[in-house]
Structures are given as structure tokens and as C-alpha cells.
Amino acid sequence: MTDQMNEAMLDAMESVQEVKVGDSVQGEVLSIEDNKQIIVGILGAGVEGVVPIKELSTLPIETITDIVKIGDTIELVVISEIGKDKENGSYLLSKRRVDAKKVWEKIEDSFKAEELIEGTVTDVVKGGLVVDTGVRGFVPASMVDSHFVSDFSGYKGQTLTFKIIEIEPSENRLILSRKAVIEAEKAEMKKEILDKISEGDIIEGTVARLTNFGAFIDLGGVDGLVHVSEIAHYHVEKPEDELTVGETVSVKVLGINPDEERISLSIKETKDGPWSGIEEKAAVGSVLEGVVKRLTSFGAFVEIFPGVEGLVHISQISHKHIATPHEALEEGQEITVKVLDVNEDNRRIGLSIKALEEKEEPVVEESFEMPEESTGFTLGDVIGKDLEQ
């Protein structure tokens, strides 16, 4: 053997890559065995390796050919040496771990840049959601939504956007939050709405929540409050008596406090007041049903329409003389009244009860007449006799 041949052989031997556990290598797919594993030739090393199906992808796969085909060159990492006497190769390799490493690196970059990432909810567990982002992520129950959720089953299969809360690749630990994304979106929408609306605007919203003191109206990302006193022109005892959750309503903006992100609204200000058109609704001479609301020393206030009260003066309560309205009426009593006069500008209505009742005629006592035959004198004789005396 010549010196040149020896030197060529030494160069060839030196050019053969030594394979160690943990190395990243390139492998050419030589064969696919029973859809369970692939055999690859490690380029530059002159040896073969085995990649089980579970080490081919970070996602579950059914058919190996969906991932690789014979002749493909793929990037792999050496997991362990399985012996040169093994029929299927001498090294156990993984493509999944290479892909996962790249995903972790990308996620770490997103975390540092405070960027959001996407993931698909693959499972619902007692403590929260399992999410596939290329690697396994976890969303604790308290970070799933901005409000309490009792059943997470509806999230399974959804692809959502998440904020990275905690990341530790060495421990395969990735904690995500959907709640943070929702709250950030709401804050942005709230800012846009607060910048867009002005006091006095009339806009549409949806009844989001009802409380004992009013109704919260969703204006498209920010809630405004309609106090119970601003629901209707008449007295409202409970908001649920007038409104239902999900109902679309028109509201007028009464006030905006950007610092506290509070919006005061009114529903009644978008509607005609109860006195509007009252001269037609309660025309002079008309007879109406009403409820006694208040009694005073000078008369009774009677509600004839929601939010509209008229006065029955004490002199119009009864044909009989009464010293106080309490003698004839009581609060809450339903009565019939006749309209005497109406003044829409001054919001005054004069009513009468007695105008609908018949006046009783006074009883006249009969005068006594003396029968003439009983005395033998006439009444004139008696009077004349008295004058003579």
C-alpha cells in the first residue's frame, strides 16, 4: 500500500463523525418499519439509528409517512447508544426533541418580547386547561377567564391566544393565562369607547347585569351604570321589573369619569316624559282611574298615569262637608276622577271626585196646619184677635 493510499484512508477515518449522546445529527431516512419506527443513516458517521414513532413529532401521529418519507434528511438528537450488535441500528434518536427545543427557544423569545402566543386546548383537567403550543402548556383555572367559570368543557378543541406567565424549559414548565389576554383586550376597548363617547350622547347597549341599585349596560367592551332612578320616569322598585339581561336598550350618557372608568347612563332620558302630551291623554272632562298617593290637609294627590299626579282639592272630594281628606280617602285607594283642568307647562292637573257623584237634595220639613173644624176658628181669626188686643 502506497503512502498516498494510507494517507487517504487516514483522512477518511478522521472524517467519520464520532457520535455521542446529546449530539445533534443529520439522518437520512432509509426505511419505515411497520409504522412503528424509522431507520436512518447518520450522515458523516457511517452508522445507523432508530427513531420510534413517539419520537417523531411533538403531536400525536397516526401514520409515519405524514411526517417523513424514505430519502428525507431530518435533524435529530442522539438519546442513547443501543449497541452495535443491534439489528436495527446502534443509536436511539429523536426528532421530537429537536422540534421541542426549537419551540422552547421561540417561546422564550416571545416571553422576553412580551408577545402573545397561540395554542390549542387539548384537555380539560381539574386544575385548568392543557394547551398544545408545540410543547405542553398549562392554564390554571384562575387564569382561564376574567369571570368565574364552573365548566371548562367548552374550551376543549379551541385555538386561543395566551399570555406567557412562567417558562422553564429545563422542567418542561409553561404556565399560560387567557384571563390576562381578555383583560388587556377589555382595557383597550374601554379606552377606545371612553375616547369616543361624550356626555349627552344617545347610544345603544346591552343589559349585562342587574343589581338592586340599577343595571349595568355593556356598551361594547365597557359597562355603564343606569341607576334605578334613571330607568323610568315613574318609580321603579326593582330593576328586574323593567329590564332583562341581554335586552338591547337606548341610553343617554349623563357623565364620564375617565380616571375611574365610570360611565353614568339614563334610559328614561331617551323616552318622552310622562307629562308629554298630557293635555290629550287627560283632556278636560275626561274620566280616569287613579290611585291615591298622598293625603294632605288641603286635598289628595292621585296618580292617573305612571309618573303623573293630579290634585283633588278638599272641596272636590265630596258634596258633604269634610274637615280633612282622611275622612273620605286613604292612601293606596283606587278611585275614579274627572279632569277639571290641565296645565302641561306647569305640570298641574285639577281633579274631582264629587263631580261624578249625584248631589243629595236637602230634606224639607213639613209645616204644621191646624184643622179648622177642630177649633171653630180660622188662623186669620186668631191673628186678628191678637192684633185687636
Rank of each mutant, 00 (worst) to 15 (best):
G224W: 15
I70T: 10
H319G: 08
L219P: 06
V291C: 05
Y155F: 04
G332D: 09
A113Q: 14
D99Q: 09
F298W: 11
L174C: 07
T206Q: 13
S198H: 13
I53V: 15
P239G: 04
G273Q: 09
T270Y: 13
M189C: 00
K293V: 07
M370G: 03
I263F: 01
L379T: 12
D145H: 14
H233I: 08
V342G: 01
N172H: 09
P371T: 05
D259T: 12
M143F: 04
L254I: 10
G380N: 15
K196Q: 10
K95M: 14
L265P: 10
I32F: 02
W275A: 09
T73A: 03
V364E: 03
D386M: 04
V312K: 13
G350W: 01
I256D: 06
G119V: 03
E303Q: 11
E171G: 05
V47S: 07
D99P: 04
D201G: 06
V382L: 15
E330P: 00
F301V: 04
A184T: 05
V131S: 01
V228A: 05
G221M: 13
K102I: 14
R209C: 00
G277F: 09
G134H: 07
S80Q: 14
V40I: 08
F216W: 15
A232Q: 15
I175A: 07
D259S: 07
S146E: 07
P325N: 07
A328T: 02
D272Q: 11
K20D: 01
T159S: 11
W104D: 06
S315G: 05
G350D: 12
A45S: 09
E108P: 00
F162S: 08
I32H: 10
S170R: 08
V181N: 00
L329A: 00
E357L: 08
A12W: 14
L288H: 14
L176K: 07
Y155A: 01
I317F: 04
L225Y: 06
G157P: 12
E48W: 01
T324K: 08
V337Q: 01
Q389T: 14
D34N: 09
V25S: 08
M9L: 15
H233F: 11
G307S: 12
L43D: 15
L56P: 01
V16D: 00
G310A: 10
I175E: 07
G255A: 13
F298P: 04
S276P: 00
E87L: 13
E358I: 03
S80E: 15
I61E: 10
S15L: 11
M13C: 06
A323K: 12
V337M: 07
E81N: 09
R136G: 05
G273Y: 06
D66I: 03
E365Q: 11
N35W: 11
Q333I: 04
I74R: 11
K359H: 01
M9F: 10
T270G: 10
G376I: 01
K126V: 00
V363Y: 03
S153P: 02
G350N: 12
G221C: 05
Q316G: 02
S250E: 15
D341P: 01
I383S: 03
H313M: 03
G205C: 10
E230I: 14
E358R: 02
